[in-house]
């Protein structure tokens, strides 16, 4: 059976789409880790966080999935929230000391889990 260039192009596009779907699912399911990882670098409001993850990962986390996580993490004492001086429109979130420790551990555990899954699949 001859494989045309178009077939190869279609397969490559399918693999890329499929890979994107997996990345999309992994990030959405584990958004708490990705959100905390972004907050390690700088403090951000919900809007900035969604934009940041979209520009880095090409995955759009919807508002209804991000703000509940921010509120819950704040309630658990992992995030500190404050309005910018003179601007009551954006509530900026930063990691507390406890939050930073948990974020670093979660990022480490998550990375190791991904490596293990990858090894399992390659067997």
């Amino acid at each position: 059976m001859n494989t045309s260039i178009q077939d190869i192009a279609d397969l490559s596009e399918f693999q890329e789409d499929n890979c994107k779907k997996f990345v999309d699912r992994i990030i959405k399911t584990n958004r708490e880790v990705f959100m905390m990882s972004s907050l390690i670098e700088k403090q951000m409001c919900g809007y900035d966080l969604i934009k940041e993850i979209f520009s880095k990962c090409d995955v759009f986390l919807s508002q209804g999935t991000v703000y509940p996580v921010l509120y819950t993490l704040e309630g658990e004492g992992l995030l500190h929230a404050e309005y910018s001086k003179g601007d009551m429109r954006s509530k900026n979130y930063s990691l507390t000391l406890k939050g930073r420790k948990i974020a670093e551990k979660d990022i480490d555990d998550f990375s190791r889990a991904l490596e293990q899954v990858s090894l399992l699949l390659k067997r």
Binding site: C45, S62, G64, Y67, R89
Partner: peptide, 24 residues
Amino acid sequence: DMRLEWMDSELDLIKTTEEVIDSY
């Protein structure tokens, strides 16, 4: 916070409310 940071036209509040429920 959501309504201060986003325009109403960018929010589908029924869908968003469903997502909020799912998140909790």
